[in-house]
Design a protein around this nucleic acid. Structure first.
Lengths: 336, 336
DNA sequence: TTCAGAAATGTTATCGATAACATCCGCTTT
DNA sequence: AAAGCGGATGTTATCGATAACATTTCTGAA
């Protein structure tokens, strides 16, 4: 309440409660051997002084902070941005602050630099949104004793990982289009070095093969509406293309526009399915059928894996896969 | 290089260089009174050991960390997300880490909680993305000696502030539509308690009044495509509506779809101008004329104000206004 | 009643940096 | 040649917490 003076330290609390600072520390850290009555007295003193522990001091002596570092590609893409936001929220609820470290590219030296910065800050754990193979490689240097969780990383790395089941999502999308009567499905993928892209390609291809459908050539792009548009201009000229599955909603937006310009009606002539379910997807022309990823669930799962590692030393490398959900709208209805 | 052992401390460097740890500290902090030769010797020792200072220890003794706290609404909206990402990048270049603190609502108690968390971490400064009036009010509790910069906050608060010139952006958009021959311009605003919204409303209204045009009733919405769509359904039924200026691109997207459904052609029957220039705006149907905000410039300006405050105590409350830019595309061409 | 052992609490050392002050050295100045 | 001075460096105290060990107090069994 009193602004002017310096914020109270543990010894101030101790003096007021008539105990030693060590006892205050024990109360703060929920040590068992403190008499209930003392505990109450100390808590009262803490409340009265408005005391809050100095994290820097704690970090110095324990070598660990209440800070979780996040390594992410510098990006305003819907997926990563949402993931970061959700993770921060979950971490805050658990009493952790989150320090972001963006990188332009997920190459070795950029990642090293960011990881170093996080180690400087003595982060208690690290979350790596490692959506490309190059990122996974670059992480050899993370000290073994630092808890780390990967999001969208390499499933075969054996490290703790949380990911959306991209293969299942792609299968659902492809299956949906086949079931609607299309002979085959074209796929516009994201950059092929992203794990997300790879999983979606795999699910798409598998589903076509299992159905005995012809597998058209793979078209790959970046994640932008611009490339979706360019690719769409080509696809729009090919009358045999009646169903397109794109690796994200922005690509789909570009494709919708290209189809529209060429006079190919969606879904009458061509059906389109996206991926992500960005909030605007329901307002595309026409509303987009897409695959929703539960980013919030992913973020919370990642946090719980991380906290688990911080508690037990024997962090069994756990992997969590979150299922996606197909959202059917007009761009690809059940039946054309 | 040697992973196994604990990371070296200042005394290790001192021993290797044959000086005292204080001299090492002086070299690290660029103090003037160190002989060049000694400086070189110490730098060599630092490099050899791969020494990097312990931020926690430094924070403890100085009471300040190399950490900048950001308070933002928990949001994946394009503006705030981009701003955060850009700011983090700029801060990293200046050697600062960024700790995010999201809040669901910018009300007093949520903000207090986040600010408290940041104070716990002994942040060196605070950036508040305070786009509503309620946020500004809630910030009384920030200690006066802590450097703070507001982004998109209250221009009349007198506190250091960086903002995009919303009024100018709205004027350019409205002017553009009037110049194209429209008798008046309708406006779909964002939530009226956002400063951004208020500035855009003001610019729109001023421009109409100056041109002697009738000012239609203000339509206000949230920032979503969903509400844009609902509002658009109404506007599409009114034949006198020929020009619409929306407070962001997602609203415009919803409106485009509503117009499309009602058979009103854009731009032939109705012209539409958005705000933000999200990357997909160029691929809407039709491509969207909009107002681009230079978020990167805003972020860098905010950082430099903050660093300025950290250096001099006499932080003159400076305000920086970044101009926006009209991007003309098909949804509202120069001439219909 | 006494004593062992556990529970409760206190004392002192420590983490790794910066701040404040002390010292040493070489040079100018008189 | 002695005093004075400032540049270069070293010594010691300090920030605020936890760890390790020491001590006191309580409890229950012999």
């Amino acid at each position: 309440m009193d602004k002017g003076s310096r914020s109270p330290a543990m010894t101030d609390v101790a003096r007021l409660a008539g105990v030693s600072h060590q006892t205050v520390s024990r109360v703060l850290n929920d040590h068992p051997n403190v008499k209930e009555q003392t505990r109450i007295r100390v808590r009262a003193a803490i409340a009265e002084l408005g005391y809050r522990p100095n994290r820097a001091a704690r970090a110095l002596v324990t070598g660990r902070s209440q800070l979780i570092g996040v390594v992410a590609r510098n990006s305003t893409l819907f997926g990563p941005a949402t993931m970061l936001s959700e993770f921060e929220q979950a971490a805050a609820d658990a009493g952790f602050a989150v320090s972001v470290g963006s990188v332009h590219e997920l190459d070795r030296s950029s990642i090293s630099a960011v990881v170093d910065r996080h180690l400087d800050q003595r982060v208690a754990g690290l979350v790596v949104i490692a959506n490309t193979a190059s990122a996974t490689e670059a992480l050899a240097e993370i000290p073994g004793d630092l808890p780390v969780v990967f999001i969208d990383g390499d499933p075969d790395s054996g490290r703790p990982l949380v990911t959306v089941d991209q293969v299942a999502g792609a299968r659902a999308a492809t299956r949906h289009l086949l079931d609607a009567g299309h002979e085959t499905v074209w796929h516009v993928s994201g950059p092929t070095d992203w794990f997300d892209s790879a999983g979606r390609i795999q699910g798409w291809r598998q589903t076509l093969e299992e159905a005995g459908a012809e597998v058209p050539p793979l078209l790959s792009a970046d994640w932008s509406a611009a490339e979706g548009y360019r690719t769409g201009q080509m696809l729009a000229r090919m009358p045999e293309v009646t169903a397109i599955f794109t690796a994200n909603d922005h690509l789909a937006l570009g494709i919708l526009r290209a189809l529209h310009e060429r006079g190919r009606r969606v879904p009458h002539d061509v059906s389109v399915v996206g991926f992500d379910d960005v909030p605007e997807a329901a307002y595309f022309i026409p509303p987009l059928t897409t695959v929703r990823q539960a980013f919030g669930d992913v973020a919370r799962a990642a946090l719980s894996l991380l906290l688990g590692q911080m508690r037990d030393e024997n962090g069994t490398a756990n992997q969590i896969v979150v299922p996606p959900q197909l959202i059917v709208r007009e761009s690809a209805p059940r039946r054309v």
